[in-house]
Computed example of a mutant assay.
Amino acid sequence: MRACPPPGPRIRLLRPGEQAIVDEVFAGLSPRSRYLRFHAPLGALPAAHRRALVDVDGRDHIALVAVERRPLGIARLIRTGPAEAEVSVAVVDDAHRNGVARRLLAELERRACAAGVRELHANVLAENTAALALFRASFAQGPCVVEGDVLRLTCLPGRRARWQARPGLTCLPGRPARRRRGRRRATPATG
Results as ranks from 00 to 15, higher is better:
A44Y: 04
A44V: 10
A44P: 00
L45M: 14
L45N: 14
L45K: 15
L45F: 14
L45D: 14
P46H: 15
P46M: 15
A48S: 15
H49K: 15
H49C: 15
R50N: 12
R50S: 12
R50Q: 12
R50H: 12
R51I: 11
L53C: 12
V54T: 15
V54W: 15
V54Q: 15
D55V: 03
D55W: 09
D57W: 05
G58L: 12
R59T: 14
D60M: 09
H61Q: 07
I62Y: 09
A63N: 04
A63T: 04
L64T: 03
L64V: 03
L64I: 01
V65P: 08
V65C: 12
V67G: 04
E68N: 01
R69D: 10
R70H: 08
L72C: 05
L72V: 04
I74Q: 02
A75Q: 06
A75F: 07
R76M: 05
R76E: 05
R76T: 08
L77R: 00
I78M: 10
R79K: 10
T80K: 05
G81Q: 07
P82M: 03
P82C: 01
A83N: 09
A83Y: 06
E84W: 00
A85I: 01
A85G: 04
E86W: 09
V87N: 00
V89H: 01
V91N: 09
V91S: 08
V91A: 06
V92G: 13
V92I: 15
V92N: 12
H96S: 11
N98F: 07
V100I: 11
V100H: 07
A101P: 14
A101N: 13
R102A: 13
L104W: 06
